[in-house]
Design a binder for these strands. Structure first.
Lengths: 346, 346
DNA sequence: GTGAAAGCGCTAACAC
DNA sequence: GTGTTAGCGCTTTCAC
């Protein structure tokens, strides 16, 4: 930087100011400085900037990685967030730090002033990470919501709206015996927000239609899906539609349906909740799904965070986005059972 | 740090030395210092340390994210790498920077001395990121190999060995007409190492058995898998086994097989290459697969990188790890066609 | 609109 | 085994 200043025949502070833009510089000197920087192939040192300015211009995206891998939905969050960060002049780094034992790791990262702000993915209703980060004084935005998120910034999927639309689609096709296959009982018990919120939304939506809301939990595996479907038929033999939010179990559900000689969508319609097009297309037939607004969520979260950092610093952003219904091959008009007399209005 | 020194009644440098451990400190003073740090709830500032020491103690994992999402295999890389970094006293951050337009972003990150070293995932045969990083003077380790990786450190899957074992398994079950479904023609043309290496290995292995090596490319989609299978039957009507390395197409392959009234594994055996147990269990029947050594790859890459950084700095680590054969329900003894007379030795 | 200089919070010679 | 001190490469008052 010294060299740049000398070459441009200005002071180091002037060079710094063209870099940061924190004070007006005449076009002439700016050009001189820029030319000198290019000439010398100068690159500012991020550590030194960070130390002097007390801002790293690095944003963290905390993304617990379980062994199941990341779906296309999560990937979309990430790419959306990275793009938004880049636009705002920040770097985005992902940290695989989870809710597990590496909470100390997180505390260290947060407290060492390496990150200007953080976006949390896969937020639990009671999420220790939030406490840790708040204590460390790191600005944060959630993707998802804790139980008491009133004071926090978040963006989340509008599960109520999403489930309602899915149910509406199925009811519109004439289905009346709809079973919702959720995540596992253990996941529900652990306070996983999406599982709880969709459960409640399903009950509400079905009740509004005067229908019986049957929910079955399923382990996150193909076998879990099969078991759940078996349970569903035991509980509701007239079952003609399945709503599911479980990207792994859904394959077991489809397999079990086929195994029972039932055709999708002729005998049973299937809608998958919060599902990426990529996964939806993997199935045969391709799944009608509520597609999550992945990259928008990531983008909005970062934008809110940046506004918080660059702005007065007391904003609070709370926003819900619904998933979009994408009709593919797994839903169809309900076919009345042969034994069933036609009803008026059919 | 000043305060810590005063409280412990030592100099700041002594505090620094107990922090870095770069010179012997008597147990007594160390304890005093540690006590003072705890008392004041002191946390060193990462930026300042980085500026003064010229090392950030941050390692980057460059992980291109395409819209397909990360499989369990990639996730295992990441968790293995993160664990190893933590053990070595480094932080690991992931950067979603890809081979796309954000090469400048990478150059900036690399050149600003924010990262002590990086691990590259999804390495292409000709990978510009390698050039950029080398020019920036950032130590790097590849997961995968470029075309001329002789001078670089890398860890990669031993595709030759992996394919050979898969073919051996199928031949051992009596299969002689085996088709290999690879990634797409475009992917092959783009110089994607795994696709090319498995192709060559397949040809070599089949030729060794005196068999005809038929390879069919497939788009990364269920539809691509169906098309590939159709092409495979057109080319090799006697087909009794499919080898595949394409986690998305494999579902189309299975669907098409079922659609043709063929049973897996009774009529056709299927082996999936470089596949995680999670994905293998998704299919019906569960797939016999060559399971990739995911977390070991990540761990070894980080360990090599750290050795490079902390050691004399001229090591070069090159290592290949084979996938492990895990037999599940998609492979079985070949069933001779009815029209086919029994051969001697059967 | 520009320059001079005082730090930012540490590390690592150099002293003893 | 410990203390003193000169930076690391920037940002940002304060002065003009």
């Amino acid at each position: 930087m010294h060299d740049v200043a000398r070459l441009a025949q200005v002071s180091v502070s002037t060079v710094s100011y063209v870099l940061t833009g924190t004070r007006p510089i005449s076009q002439a000197t700016r050009d001189k400085v820029l030319a000198a920087m290019a000439e010398l192939d100068y690159q500012p040192n991020a550590m030194a900037r960070g130390l002097a300015s007390r801002r790293s211009r690095i944003l963290g995206l905390l993304m617990p990685m379980d062994e199941r891998g990341l779906g296309a939905t999560e990937t979309a969050f990430v790419t959306g967030a990275a793009a938004a960060a880049s636009v705002a002049g920040y770097h985005l780094v992902l940290s695989p730090i989870g809710g597990g034992g590496d909470l100390d790791d997180l505390r260290r990262l947060a407290t060492q002033r390496m990150l200007d702000g953080v976006v949390l993915m896969e937020v639990q209703l009671a999420d220790e990470r939030v406490t840790v980060l708040q204590e460390a004084g790191v600005p944060l935005v959630l993707i998802g919501r804790t139980g008491d998120a009133d004071a926090l910034s978040y963006v989340d999927i509008d599960f109520e709206q999403t489930v309602r639309e899915a149910v509406e689609h199925l009811v519109g096709l004439g289905h009346r015996h709809i079973v919702y296959v959720n995540h596992s009982a253990a996941t529900l018990a652990s306070g996983y927000g999406p599982a709880l919120r969709t459960r409640d939304a399903f009950v509400a939506a079905m009740t509004d239609y005067g229908l019986d809301p049957v929910m079955i939990p399923a382990e996150d595996s193909a076998a879990g899906g099969r078991a759940a479907l078996a349970a569903a038929f035991a509980r509701t033999p007239e079952l003609s539609a399945v709503l599911a939010m479980n990207e792994t179990a859904i394959f077991g559900i489809l397999g079990e349906l086929t195994g029972r000689g039932l055709s999708v969508p002729d005998d049973v319609s299937v809608v998958s909740l919060v599902t990426s097009p990529q996964v939806a297309e993997l199935a045969t037939p391709a799944l009608t799904a509520m597609t999550s607004p992945g990259s928008a969520l990531g983008r909005i979260a970062i934008e809110a965070l940046v506004r918080h950092l660059d702005g007065p610093g007391n904003e609070r952003h709370q926003q819900l986005l619904p998933c979009a219904l994408e009709i593919r091959g797994s839903t169809a008009q309900r076919r009345p059972a042969i034994s069933e007399p036609p009803r008026r209005g059919d």
